[in-house]
């Protein structure tokens, strides 16, 4: 199948939005802006999922990531009251050049590897991932990956309890032994 230019154009726009938003996540002085830009990146990735015949994942991406996760970020930012502009000047000597150097090298390295060993050909549309996507994933989840799926329940539960325990405000000026005595009394 031949490469179609409108497709490539669409892809380029989405990628540009995603990468630009990702850069804004990193570069925004205000954490609230970062969170909003993160939401935009996650939307763009959801679009890419749809283009990649994964509508179910795109939906989950929108609901869980762009919805719940980003909202949670914003919630914490507001709760802690750190929605002010911050100083982006680096304080650790040599940290920024090293970080940028390494990230750049990583980008060059991975892109190089993809160019060298990856496939330059357009994607085959051999499988109908799009049409019965939800059934396919459901089949896999509840047969092949059933145990893994069920085990995810454990981290979810742990996370819920952990969040409660960690975020609970300790009563001030009381040592552990005293609170124990309270409990017994």
């Amino acid at each position: 199948m031949k490469t179609s230019w409108p497709d490539i154009l669409f892809f380029a726009i989405v990628c540009g939005i995603a990468l630009g938003a990702a850069l804004r996540v990193v570069l925004s002085k205000n954490a609230v802006h970062s969170a909003l830009m993160l939401a935009l990146t996650l939307f763009s990735v959801a679009v890419i999922f749809i283009a990649q015949s994964a509508p179910f994942l795109a939906a989950v991406q929108m609901i869980v990531y762009a919805g719940a996760v980003v909202v949670l970020f914003l919630f914490v930012i507001m709760l802690l009251g750190v929605d002010k502009n911050e100083d982006l000047r680096e304080t650790l000597r040599g940290q920024r050049p090293a970080a940028l150097g390494l990230a750049l090298l990583f980008a060059v390295g991975t892109v190089g590897v993809i160019r060298l060993y990856g496939s330059g050909a357009p994607q085959a549309e051999a499988i109908a991932l799009g049409a019965d996507n939800v059934q396919l994933i459901a089949d896999a989840l509840f047969t092949t990956y059933l145990y893994a799926f069920e085990i995810t329940a454990a981290p979810l539960l742990v996370a819920a309890i952990a969040a409660v325990v960690l975020a609970k405000r300790e009563r001030p000026a009381k040592s552990l032994s005293e609170s124990r005595e309270d409990g017994s009394a």
């Binding site: 497709d7 669409f10 990702a22 994607q123």
Partner: peptide, 15 residues
């Protein structure tokens, strides 16, 4: 959508 596989991978790498 007929975009080369590599393009997606490069996008992934840059992100």
């Amino acid at each position: 959508m007929n975009v080369p596989t590599n393009a997606y991978l490069i996008f992934s790498a840059l992100l």
